[in-house]
Computed example of a mutant assay.
Amino acid sequence: MSLETVVEDIREEARARARDIEQDADERVDAIIADAEEEAEEIRLERQREVEREIAQEREQRLSSANLEAKQKRLEARRNVLEDVRGRVEESIASIDGERREELTDELIAATAAEFDEGASVEVYGRTDDEALIAALLESYDGYTYAGEYDCLGGVVAESEGSRIRVNNTFDSVLETVWEDNLKEASDRLFEQ
């Protein structure tokens, strides 16, 4: 064998080995690229899921916030309507006059008198416009006197120092009791859905 043949064999063997190394490197590169692409796709999909979750969460928060705001506005509107109804009722009660006012005031004075001991000295307060009416009705009660103004829609407030009792039988107190007892029913009727 000649030296040239040996050199050529070594070169051929080196080339073959280089091709094998190159092929192996290409395969490794392809595998690395495939793994990287797979990992990149997983990262992209995970990021896409995160973005979709964030969008859904943001949508849910905004929807919840909008629903809460709408509910608060409905409640405020209902409260305003109920306040308006209450104001109209108060105006209607304040405008009761004549025999009806006299009957109601008389009933409230009688209910008030029942709270005090017989023979007690009782001071009775009422609406300024009702002074003459109250004074006239009190003439049938011994020891009862009109003592002055009380800011109310009508009715009376009475007190006695001797028994340390104060009775509030005003139209306002009656309205407050009726209003509280019937507010839910009134609200349900006004806002039937």
Rank of each mutant, 00 (worst) to 15 (best):
S2P: 08
L3F: 13
L3I: 10
V6W: 01
E8S: 05
E12H: 10
A14G: 07
R15D: 08
D20W: 01
I21P: 00
A25Q: 11
E27H: 07
R28N: 14
R28H: 12
I32R: 12
I33A: 11
I33G: 01
D35W: 04
D35K: 07
D35H: 02
A40F: 06
E41N: 11
E41Y: 06
I43N: 06
L45Q: 12
E46V: 06
Q48N: 05
Q48D: 11
R49Q: 13
E50N: 07
V51P: 00
E52T: 05
E52V: 05
R53D: 14
R53T: 12
Q57S: 14
Q57D: 15
R59H: 10
Q61T: 08
S65N: 04
N67C: 03
L68Q: 13
L75D: 13
E76D: 12
E76L: 11
R78S: 10
N80G: 08
V81S: 12
L82A: 07
E83T: 08
D84M: 09
G87R: 13
E90A: 09
E90L: 07
E91W: 03
S92M: 13
S92D: 11
A94Q: 08
A94W: 05
I96R: 08
G98V: 08
E99T: 07
R101L: 13
E102P: 02
E102V: 01
E103L: 10
E103N: 15
D106P: 03
D106Q: 12
E107V: 01
L108F: 09
A110S: 14
A110W: 04
T112E: 02
D117H: 03
E118K: 07
E118T: 10
G119C: 02
V122N: 01
Y125T: 01
Y125I: 02
Y125N: 07
Y125L: 14
T128L: 05
T128W: 00
D129K: 11
D129G: 10
D129I: 04
D129H: 06
D130K: 00
A132F: 05
L133P: 03
L133T: 02
I134H: 04
L137F: 03
L137G: 05
L138I: 00
L138R: 03
L138G: 05
E139F: 01
S140K: 10
D142E: 15
A147S: 11
E149C: 02
E149G: 03
D151V: 03
C152R: 04
L153H: 06
L153C: 07
A158S: 01
R164A: 15
R164D: 13
R166I: 00
V174D: 05
T177F: 01
V178A: 09
E180A: 15
L183V: 12
L183I: 13
S187V: 06
R189K: 14
R189I: 09
L190Q: 07
F191T: 00
Q193G: 14
